[in-house]
Structure formats: structure tokens, C-alpha cells
Design a binder for these strands. Structure first.
Lengths: 329, 329
DNA sequence: CCGTTCTTTGTAATCGATTACATGGAATCG
DNA sequence: CGATTCCATGTAATCGATTACAAAGAACGG
């Protein structure tokens, strides 16, 4: 492979001048500029990225932590991040955490080793105290996640409000016995629980612990939830899930049991993924604008790199969340 | 940030010895080894990846070209790739091509600039003659794609057989008027057409050009296809689509028009994505094992890097493809 | 015409690691 | 005990770029 000094030799110039041409610096005569371009072409020269990164102390690489690549909501976020990244000349490193605390921490060392310029979390498993030390090494941004004491920019949706909205909608439709499905115990999931609890208590409805389900993520989990419900003596007549995938599992299995949706069981999703309007009856759900939250996040990230936003101080951008009424409620 | 020579200074040793400790070389006394570890801990030292990459002439980075992140079939491939990559200590660079020839070529320069050790194509837009020169710079692998004269390893499914299987199934069920939906004019799409044509001609059925649809990718495209069908004087009674998303669009719109599926219109998908068993009636489709094709690809990639497979010669691994009979045919 | 400024180019240090080669001392062997 | 081998460590070159500083010549102003 040709190096910059091969080009220098070929043209009879110094590598400094060649570098100036590569980086479009002024104060290089047109003639030499042309000469260098010709030589680069002829030798098939391309600058070595590792050498540049070493010298420039940056990589134009961002690590994106994502729990599962096969979750459409997260890929829509990723899509939003990617589009802005591509536009601004950044590359994305995929870090699938599988919701594992250990993997999350492992990926953070990419910052320490300067393999990436910064990290975007689209979900977070560890306590903030674990993460905080890494903020010294480069920008860390929370996307669709919220830690009360996180000292970084946060781009989020008001999850509590979203689930408040959803729960109130169920209550307005006359459902009183409402089940609720959790994901992990993260801040996000907590916020949703709060909104749920608030709407319930505002309506004077009691919380039935038998109707609270934990660790539900996939369609399969949704099916299991419904089976568990069927085994209860006192069954809920509405289910508020933590995601459209879970909701579609609940729906699928409900049909198998011959339950009428929404008459006998109302189902409320979260995300508004494409499947929401594909399944039948179409799923009422909470719309989370995945792509937009992603693109906003990447913009903020870039502003942090340029020092236009203080990366070590909490700042919150909140995007609107809304209820999409369809046929399952 | 602490560097290796800071560690050297702190311990009174040379950077060579420190490097030996970092890389677990033999011939370092236990005492010095401990000393170095202590100093690294104390200084919060992490080796700089760019410097290592420069010196070692490799990055442990792989570029994965993918048309759309929001297509579940491709993310299942990505998932398979990622799992093996993670296990073997590789990182993935996301390259969303949006099926653009230009972007595809742009991403290939990552190889030239040595930003990545190699490239995996999960779809390919340019002619092989455009790509070929880049094989000099590092391993290139085709995943789920096939170019007759590609001089690289290929991990693929027998697309022609898949669509042959699907078409024959439709014919066996008594459908004679079969529409066919294409994606791009890539090799993959071509193969599917071949299988379709073969099954049709074996059954002595004529091809109606009005029933061939091009450039169909999304659910929205599927809806459009059905609308176009409704406008035809002579309508097909079965549609073979190039993907489950397109199929679900066709189905959705067919229901809106009050068509009975499968009695009045049979629909056959391709991929076997999660939605296939979610929509109703459940979608008959061709199962493509996305995750497996991805993980096999990454394994082959690593074998290429280690020289255990000749990366500049065509080799083909073909995984089984099968028909999943459900309710739309 | 001389001093000043601007343009163009080169020299050499630098980024932070790895490693070929050298060296001195300890261990081993006949 | 002398020769040989092995172990532990250091010196300095190297990977391939960027850039501070120097320097020579051109342009310019009074």
C-alpha cells in the first residue's frame, strides 16, 4: 500500500505539502496541487485512517448501545441516529448489550481506549454512579432514557405522561381492571409505572399486584402474560403493555383463547411500530417517534463534540408522546 | 490521558516491558508484571486503539453494508453477524446504503483507508466489476447475495429454489393466475424470477406481464400493488411477493377491498419475519434463516482473515430454504 | 532600494503503541 | 569450569499521518 511519503517521493515534494493538498490547506500552488493529485491517483493512494486518528486524537466514530437489534423500535432510533451521522461524516459502531450490565460496561471501555469519540445509550442497565466516571473521556448521551442524577444531555419522551395518557384512556372507555406489563427496573420502566399509578389513583382504582407483570419484552412474553391472566380467578379486562411486540403476543394468544378484543379484553401497546397497524384488530398504542428521537440525539452529540453544549451537565430535551387510538381499546 | 511511557516512567521500566505485560508476553518477571499492573491501575491507563491499529495493521473492525436498518430480515442477519463478531472480538461498523450505488462505493473506501479489516455485503447494488478491485485490500464477503462471477466467498440461500417451491405450492393449490413482485434487478431478485418462471412453465402456465411488479420493498408498496391489481380487467388470484412486508401490505389492502384471503386472493410472502405469524390470516411464506446466514457469514469472514479460506476465490455455502404453510394460500 | 509582509515549501518532532535486535546475567551441561 | 542456552530487560526504529517552526523568494510600500 502506498503511503504519504510514496506520494511525496513520486512528486519530488515533501510529505508536508502532500498532507496540505489532502486536507485542502491554502498556500499550495495550483501546479503542485495538480501534481500531487495525479500521483495519488497513479499510486492508488488512500490516507491511513489509524494514522490520522492517532495524530488528530479523534476517530469520527460513535458507539451506539442498543439492547436488541431485532427490536424494531430500537432500530428506528438507530435509523435516525445513522441518518444524521452519515450526513455529518460520522460512523456508528454497533454495541448490542442484550440488556447485560457487564456488556454495557465493556462497551464503555471503547471510550477509554479512544476507539470512539463518544457513546450514545439507547437504554441503560447500570447505575449512574458506574457510568459517571466515563464522562471524563468523552461525550455520553442518553437517548430515550432518563436517570435523575445523570450529568449528561438527555433526549427523551415523557414516559410517565405517556402511560398516564394510555391508562386514562382505558379508564375513560370504562375499563377498571387494568393489568400492567413492565420491562426491566430501569428509570424508563419506572416512569411508566408512575404514570400508570397516578392515573389509577386519580380514578380511585386500586392496584392489584396480581395484575402487574415483570420482565416482559417479546411477543413470546406477551403470550405468557395472557396465559397467566387466564389462570387467575379474578381477571383484568384490559392490559397495558410495555411495547407493541408484547401487546401483539397478548392479542394473538387472546384470540386463541377466543376472547373478544376489545369487548372482553382491551389491549394497549407502546411504541407504535409498523406491526401496530398491521395486526387485527389494529392496536391502540402510545406513539414514540423513534427516528426523530434518534436524529435529535445525534445532533446533540455533535454539538457536544464542538463544545456548543456542555457535555458534563444535565440538559433535557423532551419530545412529544401521544396516544394513537385504534381498535383494541 | 496516561500513555504507555507514563506507565514506564512510573515503574522505572521501559515501555517495551510495559507493552509485554499488556500483551501477556512471556519472559517478564512476576514482580515487574505486578508493578506494571499497579501503575496502570493507579494512572487509569488504557492503551490507545489508534496507535495499536496503526502499528498492528489491523483494526478488528468489519463494515456491514445493509440496505435498511428498519427491515427486520436484515436486522436478523445483522444480529447473527453481531453475535459471532462479539464472541471473536470484532466490532461492527454500520453502513446503511439505502440501496444506493454511490453509497455502496463510498463505504468501500473504508477498506482502502484501512478503517476496517473487511466488508460484508448483505445486499449489493453495483456490478461485480466495480467491486472486484477492492478485494485486493481485504476480505469481502457476500451474505445472502449472489453474483455469478464474484471472486469471493458467498453465503447464500437458493433463492431460485425458494420461489420455485412457493410458486409450485400456489399451483398445487389450484391457483393459475399468479402475480409476482420484484425488488431491484439484483442477482437475488433475478434468481427468484427464474424459479418463478420455471415453476410456471413446468405447469404450462403463461406469464402475464401485467402481473409482474417491480421495485416493491415496503408495506406501502404492497398496498399499491393491490390497488393496481384491482384496476386490472384481468386480475390475478394469487400474489407472490418478495418479502413479508410487501405481503402484509397486499393483505391489509385486500381486506380493505373486502377480498377474501385465500379464497379470492392467495398471498405468499418471503422471509418468515415475526409479523408473518402475527397478521391474520397468518402468512404462508418462504423461510429464510436470517440469523444463521449472518453467523455463518461472520465465521467465514474470520476464516478469511486467518487465511484458512481463500478470500479471492469464489466459494459458496448454501443454507436450506423452506416453505412455511400458513393460512394465506 | 530596503524593510516588511505574504506565499510556498521543507525539516523534523509528534501522536502512542509494538518489536527486532542487543545486552548482561543466570542457569545448564558435559 | 568454560561454553552454551535461556531469561529479563532496554534501545531505538517503525507504523503513517499532521503541524510547529524555519527559510527562501516574491510582492509591496514608502
Amino acid at each position: 500500500m502506498a503511503t504519504i511519503s510514496d506520494v511525496a517521493k513520486q512528486t519530488g515534494l515533501s510529505s508536508a505539502t502532500v498532507s496540505r493538498v489532502i486536507n485542502n490547506y491554502p498556500h499550495v500552488s495550483e501546479e503542485k496541487r495538480r501534481l500531487v493529485h495525479e500521483a495519488m491517483e497513479e499510486l492508488g493512494y488512500f490516507p491511513n485512517t489509524s494514522a490520522r486518528n492517532l495524530r488528530n486524537r479523534k476517530t469520527n466514530l460513535v458507539a451506539v448501545l442498543i439492547p436488541r437489534l431485532t427490536n424494531p423500535f430500537f432500530t428506528s432510533i438507530l435509523d435516525g441516529i445513522e441518518k444524521v451521522a452519515e450526513e455529518k461524516g460520522f460512523q456508528l459502531l454497533i454495541c448490542q448489550t442484550q440488556s447485560s450490565k457487564k456488556k454495557e460496561m465493556d462497551f464503555l471501555t471503547l471510550l477509554k481506549t479512544k476507539q470512539v469519540d463518544g457513546v450514545i445509550f439507547t437504554s441503560i442497565e447500570n447505575d449512574w454512579s458506574e457510568i459517571k466516571p466515563y464522562t471524563e473521556s468523552g461525550p455520553i448521551i442518553l437517548c430515550n432514557e432518563y436517570h435523575r442524577n445523570a450529568t449528561v444531555p438527555i433526549i427523551r419522551l415523557d414516559q410517565a405522561y405517556g402511560s398516564y395518557l394510555g391508562t386514562r384512556h382505558l379508564i375513560e372507555r370504562g375499563y377498571r381492571k387494568i393489568a400492567f406489563c413492565h420491562g426491566s427496573k430501569s428509570g424508563l420502566s419506572n416512569d411508566r409505572r408512575k404514570g400508570f399509578v397516578r392515573a389509577m389513583s386519580e380514578a380511585g382504582l386500586p392496584l392489584n399486584q396480581e395484575w402487574i407483570f415483570h420482565n416482559t419484552y417479546t411477543m413470546e412474553d406477551g403470550k405468557n402474560v395472557l396465559r397467566e391472566i387466564m389462570n387467575l380467578r379474578d381477571r383484568p379486562n384490559a392490559v397495558f403493555t410495555g411495547g407493541d411486540e408484547v401487546a401483539s403476543g397478548v392479542l394473538k394468544e387472546a384470540k386463541r383463547y377466543g376472547l373478544k378484543v376489545p369487548e372482553e379484553l382491551a389491549i394497549l401497546g407502546f411504541d407504535d411500530q409498523p406491526i401496530a397497524s398491521l395486526i387485527e384488530p389494529e392496536l391502540t398504542t402510545i406513539c414514540q417517534p423513534g427516528e426523530e428521537i434518534g436524529s435529535r440525539t445525534m445532533s446533540v452529540f455533535i454539538d457536544c463534540l464542538n463544545g456548543e453544549i456542555d457535555r458534563k451537565q444535565q440538559s433535557v430535551i423532551e419530545l412529544p408522546i401521544s396516544l394513537v387510538k385504534r381498535k383494541t381499546t
